[in-house]
Design a protein around this nucleic acid. Sequence first.
DNA 1: ATTATTTTTGGAACCGGTTCCTTTAAAGTC
DNA 2: GACTTTAAAGGAACCGGTTCCAAAAATAAT
Lengths: 332, 332
Amino acid sequence: MNTTISDIAQMAGVAKSTVSRYLNGGSVSVKTKQKLERITREAGYVPNTFAQSLKAKRTNLIGTIVPRLDSFAAAQTMTGIDEELRAAGGQMLVYNAGQEREREIEAMHDLARQKVAGIILMPAQVTDEHLLAAEAAGIPVLLVGQGNEALHSLVYDDYQAGLLMGRYVLEKGHRRIAYLGVTEEDEAVGRRRKEGFKQAVLECTDCDVFYYESSFKIADAKLAAERILDECGPTLIVCATDNIALGVVKTAHVRGLSIPSELSITGFGGYEVTSIIHPELTTVRFPYFEAGKLAARHMLKLTAGEDVERLTVMDVEMLVRESVDNLNNSSV
Amino acid sequence: MNTTISDIAQMAGVAKSTVSRYLNGGSVSVKTKQKLERITREAGYVPNTFAQSLKAKRTNLIGTIVPRLDSFAAAQTMTGIDEELRAAGGQMLVYNAGQEREREIEAMHDLARQKVAGIILMPAQVTDEHLLAAEAAGIPVLLVGQGNEALHSLVYDDYQAGLLMGRYVLEKGHRRIAYLGVTEEDEAVGRRRKEGFKQAVLECTDCDVFYYESSFKIADAKLAAERILDECGPTLIVCATDNIALGVVKTAHVRGLSIPSELSITGFGGYEVTSIIHPELTTVRFPYFEAGKLAARHMLKLTAGEDVERLTVMDVEMLVRESVDNLNNSSV
DNA sequence: ATTATTTTTGGAACCGGTTCCTTTAAAGTC
DNA sequence: GACTTTAAAGGAACCGGTTCCAAAAATAAT
């Protein structure tokens, strides 16, 4: 049914090695080149990827393991990876881990088995199991979003993000603040982002900060917001992610609290939706798309055996918008 | 480096055909079975996918072509496809067409070349080129979101969605309405959705409807909303998608128009964000996730040579929320 | 014209599995 | 114990390419 290289060879009256050489730009005489050009075109010949990969022992596929498909960050990163990979003739094989650690591990084994050229992993947390699986895979593994000394990583400057945000809200006069974070098992979002914020707080003498914790889910954030408002009545809630902020915004609306005059709210991420809602959310932009592109570039280098710096830190950018009240004005 | 079936055969002192038989559940004596069990485990043997596929002439990969990665609908559908496929031992290969028709075509050729078992396509519009490419691919192609007689399709009941929405807003007393749609080249969203709405309008005697058009982009929707408000000052704007509605909501906020008392707005889709914003958006829910799962199930059947109904229509559900004012009350 | 050199080609092996067919070993029958 | 039947194992071919090496053809040099 499908024409093979042998079919072409027979039609052209040459050996299949000649056809192969023609296809791969080896030395072929002008007339056989022309003849083969015509025949392959007419027969609509396309080489069989398996046979090629079997011999070459590798594919042009890069496995990308994401925690979920329906998150802004993941989508942006994937888009970046895909764009860059395609430009280089590669392809992205997406593996959805569904936010389960075991499935991330399983994915690595699976992808290695399928002989993808490399793996880009966006984990919530890097465990020894991840390291072991990466080791066993025998192919380059690149971490995005979380860092680890044992692997190539591309991370965001979470500390700086926290610091920027902390300084900004303090500068706006807020002194009674709730920080709604996530589990410290998450090194980047749970720890570093918070540490940066804490550093900013340290630089301030008279500030009360109350630390709370939630999951990444909007529903949980809504509940946490209820608790925060009941327990400590802050002028501002700093949320560890834009999604959490969205949940808090929702709770504020439900309670009839006006943003920012009665409650200020901030996020982290720079999700598109934060500029759609009213008032627009003050947040820190994380360059997900650019990170995806860079990750792909790095991965291509790694698969080509080239050297890449082990740790790359992406800059973040403060996005000052409308959800933080300026308390300095009101005292003037 | 990687252990092959021959290595295993040698270690076990048997022929590789025996090992293959063992691996695939053929008849093997108890003691060789035990020996091979031990050896394959100790050697950490995993079969080479290429070699298998080369012989079998197919993969367990299902190609999925999406218009973009960062859309709620696409993400939900992909999640559904992935979930169902994985449960059946398959895998999803995502191809991002970046909203370009040529790249959809290119993707089909590309995927066919890679011998994916089938293709799930989410096009904005089905052209002859699509049909040709599907034909040439020689593998099952399943359309999601748009229908075509020539291919297996899974569509949403767009007409019904438009009808439901039309009847609902008319029932709420709106009589001066703007419908912000998209290009009629889009059969599902551009035509059928609108037709359903028009049918509802027909059922009403004294209703002024103004039809406008926008792209799918939020930015364009904002602009269109400006024009609508200036030109015809409706009590309600029916938007062809939730994203468009989001843009219109934004414009309303910017103009200081209160929703729904000064302007009612509706969407189509049921995107998560519509229940996060305030007021919550009244819209029609499209079962993207379920459609993804069903698409995967259908595709698995198709690749297995089983029969599947050519056209499947997914039901939609009216989501009555807060963004439509009840004009009947005000007159009481 | 003859020999040396370079360019094109053909043939065969190989990549790592699966499968068909034959041979060998084990078990069952008389 | 000889003979048939069944189960287990081995050998070789095949899937569709790539690549190495040797043979053949074309070109250059003497």
